[in-house]
């Protein structure tokens, strides 16, 4: 596996608009199955970068390779059909039903009708959309969150190697966004797709991504796991972007209760309990709310450990 070329590889890539280097000497290597979040303030070049990958914008310098092959060696359409693409507004085709929207790429690829039908059914289920209700509906009848679910289903339809997502959830309300983030995390886990995800929301990036690239003025300022970023921000810009005051809480948010708990040692049965999969921030919140300095950790209804306030602050 280690010999296989990275699925996406950018080498010294630049894009210049009228003398301004919107993307400046970016190098990036994305291994198979990675969930990469590109994050930065508006105008930092993050959206341009993902458009360079599917050639909606052509890069001016450097090289971009997909599974080792230069992207310009493909026809544009062939390249893009290998990559799902999701944009902020969903971009659903308003004159087509949900089914026809999801089937866009399979139709372009000439799949058989039965196969397309089955695939649509499968994807509606994956995105938790009721097939009976939504299959024949037109996009304008759908809520923003439902539209975005269809957008993701459409991007996944032909089983692409890579999913490119440009701020897909930033126009949604917090509750809907939370639900879609959970769905995306589940899909990433189930399908193992490589995902490149542009966002300006640090919590979103830390929650979903396995790798985070922080961009500023066309450069990648830091690339690392969420944990690496939080523990060792490369400079003040990254530190500022992580939120100077919230950094500690964010550190808690990327680890689960299970990872810090100690063996069961007879905490009283009335001590509040927390699920093993909860993050440490939720654990802290529970302690503050209940006035306890210890919690029982449960998994599948069974107590599997104990978590103390001291465990949270231990780095």
């Amino acid at each position: 596996m280690t010999d296989a070329p990275p699925i996406i590889q950018l080498d010294h890539v630049s894009k210049i608009y009228g003398g301004v280097r919107a993307v400046d000497d970016v190098s990036l290597s994305v291994a198979h199955g990675t969930f990469l979040a590109i994050i930065g303030p508006s105008g930092c070049g993050k959206s341009t970068t993902i458009r360079l990958i599917n050639r909606l914008i052509e890069h001016d310098e450097g090289s971009i390779r997909i599974s080792g092959e230069e992207i310009r060696s493909f026809r544009e359409e062939t390249l893009r059909r290998r990559m799902g693409y999701v944009i902020q507004s969903g971009g659903l085709f308003p004159h087509w039903t949900v089914e026809r929207n999801i089937a866009t790429v399979p139709v372009l690829l000439g799949w058989k009708p039965e196969r397309i039908r089955d695939r649509v059914t499968e994807l509606l289920a994956l995105l938790q959309l009721d097939a009976n209700r939504f299959r024949k509906a037109y996009p304008h009848r759908l809520s923003g969150g439902q539209q975005q679910r269809v957008g993701i289903a459409r991007a996944l339809a032909a089983d692409p190697d890579v999913l490119l997502m440009d701020e897909p959830f930033s126009a949604l309300d917090p509750i809907t966004r939370n639900a879609l983030q959970a769905s995306l995390a589940r899909i990433h886990k189930e399908t193992g797709k490589t995902i490149v995800f542009v966002t300006h929301d640090m919590d979103e990036a830390l929650r979903l991504a396995t790798q985070v690239a922080v961009m500023d003025r066309g450069h990648i300022v830091q690339l690392g796991t969420p944990r690496e970023l939080l523990h060792a921000p490369a400079n003040d810009f990254v530190r500022g972007f992580l939120g100077a005051e919230d950094r500690g809480l964010r550190l808690l948010a990327i680890e689960t209760a299970a990872s810090r708990m100690r063996p069961v040692n007879g905490l009283a049965a009335e001590t509040p309990a927390i699920a093993a999969g909860s993050d440490l921030r939720q654990a802290l919140s529970e302690m503050l709310a209940t006035g306890q300095h210890a919690l029982r950790v449960e998994e599948a209804g069974r107590v599997v450990g104990e978590l103390y306030l001291d465990d949270l602050v231990r780095l």
Binding site: L56, R81, G84, Y85, I87, G90, F93, T104, V105, G151
Partner: peptide
């Protein structure tokens, strides 16, 4: 035709 509809069409792999 909205710009994002166009972008989606191209981005998804239409000629």
């Amino acid at each position: 035709v909205p710009a994002d509809t166009r972008e989606a069409a191209l981005g998804i792999g239409m000629s």
